[in-house]
Design a binder for these strands. Structure first.
Lengths: 215, 215
DNA sequence: ACCTGAACACCGTTCAAGT
DNA sequence: ACCTGAACACCGTTCAAGT
């Protein structure tokens, strides 16, 4: 049943994951669902939990022993693995953010990251700051809030109308769009994810080594 | 009318911002609204735009001349100012993320940040990566996805049940909760926002100076 | 041009009734 | 224990009708 909920959200988006539709696909009446879960929230939580099981499996499969490259490489490998799972379920981070309940699956993932960082010698305090700094990257997602590039045709068109209003932005996009023609488009999300991830991990590493004196 | 929409969302949350309620508070029928905006989306976009006007005013008011402390301080001041506005309208970042349309207000804010970074000598390419790395921090918000601390009573209780399941996380929270007793609680959101912001800005600054050879 | 009432096609959920 | 039909209180939106 939760499996089916995940399939619906994957195929048609969370907004299509409705009690009536889920019941329909299970060949049952909508009200029957209430005998097995605590309302719609229970279904969303359960679906997220299933995705987090996938995440745990993927993270284990691609785990890097902390000896090879230190905690930084180990955390990086885990979060990049998390991303491959979340890309299959792009609605999951949104649901997790909307329903801010700490499920066991989420707690275990965070726990694993904390463990890797501690093994690398970071203080609990620094680890704690680090979790906040990672934000949604912790679950393989960077928040693409109001991304200035969006759809190619509509984005370019809207930008043309704003060119004199936002000169710096227009100039940046013109240059980046040109250079990026060799890659996947204006923005390579995977590249940007890894860039931001490395920036945070490098910063934490530097703080852990107490290299602020080197500034 | 958009002003009233912002007030409703501030006071009762976005989910309370409904066509019927907005019309009611304006002493008019719900269907009249469709003669002035393009459906509910238009109202959400308009409300966000109003918030972004506030943001622009706050950013201008607390602007730091680039000469004093460089681009880093200037960008920091602008994003911290953005945060004070968004804290008054916590629904705004969510709405912006949900409706991924680049409004003029959002574009102008991003443009200003790009301008400050460029004035600091950063390449368009590095600026572009930087925008992605900043993510929602660009608009004063760090994504508190599945925050492990949440409500004090419920969080502590849930954590007790998970203590043996997530040992590292439990140990971290136990220590951080203890130390943090002197401040505002387990997590000081403002502190965490500034920590993450500085981590990203420092990282960009380092890359701009080409100090990777110093590693 | 602007507003209105009734209606449509949806939601999540309650509740009494069936087996 | 599990399922069901009808109903309730909502949504956003369409549409013909009013002024």
């Amino acid at each position: 049943m939760l499996r089916r909920a995940v399939d619906i959200a994957d195929a048609a988006g969370v907004e299509a994951l409705t009690m009536r539709r889920l019941a329909d696909e299970l060949g049952v009446e909508a009200m029957s669902l209430y005998h097995h879960v605590r309302g719609k929230g229970g279904i969303l939580d359960g679906a997220v939990e299933l995705v987090l099981d996938e995440l745990a499996a993927a993270a284990d499969a691609s785990a890097v022993p902390p000896e090879d490259g230190g905690w930084r490489a180990a955390v990086r490998a885990r979060l990049v693995a998390a991303r491959t799972v979340m890309l299959r379920h792009p609605w999951a981070p949104d649901v997790m953010a909307a329903r801010s309940v700490m499920t066991v699956g989420a707690a275990r993932h965070v726990d694993a990251v904390v463990g890797l960082m501690r093994a690398g010698g970071l203080s609990y305090d620094l680890v704690h700051h680090g979790l906040h700094a990672l934000g949604s990257r912790m679950f393989g997602f960077s928040p693409e809030i109001a991304e200035p590039d969006a759809g190619d045709e509509q984005g370019a068109e809207a930008l043309a109308g704003m060119a004199e209003l936002v000169p710096h932005l227009a100039a940046m996009l013109a240059e980046v769009a040109h250079d990026g023609a060799t890659t996947l488009g204006w923005c390579d999300d995977q590249t940007e994810f890894e860039f931001g991830l490395d920036l945070v991990l490098d910063g934490l590493d530097r703080l852990a080594r107490g290299s602020s004196a080197a500034d």
